[in-house]
Design a protein around this nucleic acid. Structure first.
Length: 554
DNA sequence: CTTAGGG
DNA sequence: CCCTAAG
């Protein structure tokens, strides 16, 4: 933005050097003759070789059309007039040059699809006299009395682009700007760049303004292009491009097409001219974003703002939607925990039964087992004792160590703890399986059979919200695994059993094995069956007091 | 939703 | 224990 005229000249030289002989011939001649530099035409003249040369012109059109779309008032008389002026200015200037050069390299372009596709161009383009311009360059029919300042002002107004553009490096003059006083140029500059300048050099100001205008036009076009390109997924939103009349759509397509080419030739631009290249680059997607943001607060950014917000909003909505969906879908009555996970601790707390007193809230991350560890190796025994003591018949039938109220309490305890820690961890609760639970599980399996976890849960774990059928299944799997391990190295386990905090009585394991034989579990059962089958008969009391390491945590 | 299996 | 695919 702060490029000086000096830089400009340098750039210009560089650019000039970059021109290929062929192009330099054309371009320079054009430049030399271009006393009537036109905004959109610049591109046009600069790139005689490509069809994209017409970008400038097209941009101009799209620029206008977009404006209308944005304002959502196509028939606005004021806009029409202004546009006409604008068009007039551009066309009148460019037309001359077109005439001069068209036989050399522009002629093709005129016949090119860009113009052939007038139908693709916004109808507004016709209204503005572009058609005539393209056809016979009869610009005299356009409204006279054009004022440069208006032109500039309007463009700046219409354009949502405020991003500083590269300095215009051409030395050719603009007729309009030439006639402007320094003060006027300052105003123009201000309107274009949104800031004032102390520079009084008319040439410099002219260049700046010209370039700024051109950039704005291009930016707008690019913006338009971008928007159009992304319109598909924003149909919900009032997307200007598509929601407008047919002309707008056609315009969009044409713009897209043209700009697409432009973008593709970006390298070319950069390499050869540097100025246009940079401009184009910045006007790509990224720029649009930036631009939109920067203009968010401006009135002019009407269109821009809408467009900008759309994507993010949409995105957010989708995200939220997805989240809620996820929560809904997954957190059914079956697994309230999941839901809880989604919503945070406070809600979770309410979900479960009230505290039963003995519960100690464990900071997140603290292993829940800790509390139980205190029970130590005699855990099972003590559990059983308690159970026996309380001896609550409950639903458990055969096992002496059937679930007891005590157990329930401890379970609740676990739950509470788990909830506390649940807040932020995926591993919400690592609720240790209490001996009674294990027993109940086994009992349930013995009664219902393996695989009918839902039923087992219903029978043996009716009151506990946790321990879903899946949990039971997992636990059973683990039990089987434990049995397997134990079988492989009974002795070892026996020796190290004291270390483990939780021990599953051998009896239990035997029971498990027995059940495993009768109700083979999908996998582990096989190896087990062979082993346990013969032993199962000896299950009784002989081995009762023996215990094997068994992880009860999972 | 339940079950089975993987992580 | 959690997640997910499959019936």
């Amino acid at each position: 933005m702060n490029t000086t005229s000096k830089d400009c000249s340098i750039t210009f030289d560089e650019i000039a050097n970059m021109f290929t002989p062929k192009f330099s011939e054309v371009d320079l001649s054009l430049f030399a003759a271009s006393e009537h530099e036109a905004i959109g035409l610049e591109h046009f003249l600069m790139e005689p070789k490509c069809n994209r040369n017409l970008i400038g012109v097209v941009d101009f059109e799209t620029f206008h059309s977009q404006k209308f779309f944005d304002v959502e008032d196509f028939s606005g008389a004021i806009e029409y007039d202004e546009t006409k002026h604008h068009c007039d200015a551009v066309c009148s200037n460019s037309a001359k040059e077109v005439r001069e050069e068209k036989r050399e390299s522009i002629e093709d372009m005129l016949n090119d699809n860009v113009f052939d596709g007038k139908t693709r161009l916004p109808t507004t383009g016709k209204e503005f006299g572009l058609e005539s311009y393209l056809g016979n360059a009869d610009l005299e029919s356009l409204s006279p009395g054009f004022d440069e300042r208006d032109y500039v002002a309007e463009i700046s107004y219409m354009s949502s682009a405020s991003v500083p553009a590269l300095q215009f490096t051409h030395n050719h003059n603009s007729p309009m700007l030439n006639q402007m006083t320094v003060h006027e140029l300052h105003e123009a500059f201000k309107s274009v760049f949104g800031r004032e300048t102390l520079v009084t050099d008319k040439q410099w100001l002219k260049h700046r303004v010209l370039f700024g205008l051109r950039n704005q036009v291009e930016s707008d076009s690019d913006l338009n292009h971008i928007k159009c390109g992304t319109t598909s997924y924003k149909t919900e939103d009032k997307t200007l491009c598509l929601s407008s009349s047919d002309s707008s759509r056609s315009a969009a397509s044409s713009i897209k097409c043209v700009l697409g080419d432009e973008t593709m030739s970006l390298d070319w631009h950069v390499g050869r001219k540097g100025l246009a290249g940079l401009d184009l680059q910045t006007t790509s997607m990224e720029l649009s974003e930036i631009e939109l943001c920067s203009h968010d607060g401006g009135d002019k950014a009407l269109v821009t703002r809408k467009r900008l917000r759309k994507p993010p909003k949409r995105y957010i909505e989708e995200s939220l939607e997805a989240n809620s969906k996820y929560c809904k879908g997954k957190s059914g009555a079956v697994r309230p925990r999941k839901c809880l996970k989604e919503f945070g601790t406070s809600q979770l707390a309410c979900e479960d039964k009230p505290f039963k007193g003995s519960c100690i809230q464990v900071p997140f991350g603290l292993p829940i087992e800790e509390g139980h560890v205190k029970i130590n190796a005699s855990y099972w025994d003590s559990e059983n004792c308690r159970d026996d003591r309380i001896s609550s018949p409950k639903q458990l039938v055969t096992e002496p160590s059937a679930a007891a109220s005590q157990d329930e309490i401890s379970e609740d305890e676990h739950v509470t703890r788990s909830i506390v820690r649940k807040g932020s961890s995926r591993r919400k609760h690592h609720i240790s399986w209490t001996p009674s639970e294990v027993m109940r599980l086994i009992e349930g399996v013995s009664q219902c059979g393996v695989g009918r976890w839902a039923e087992i849960k219903r029978l043996s774990f009716p009151s506990s919200s946790r321990r879903t059928s899946v949990d039971l299944k997992d636990k059973w799997r683990n039990l089987l695994r434990a049995c397997c391990v134990q079988l492989q190295s009974k002795r070892k386990v026996k020796q190290g059993q004291k270390q483990a905090s939780h021990r599953v009585p051998e009896s239990v394991l035997w029971r498990v094995r027995e059940l495993a034989t009768t109700y083979p579990y999908p996998r582990e059962s096989n190896s087990k069956v062979a082993y346990t089958a013969p032993i199962s008969s000896s299950f009784p009391a002989a081995i009762q007091n023996r215990s094997v390491a068994l992880s009860t945590s999972v």
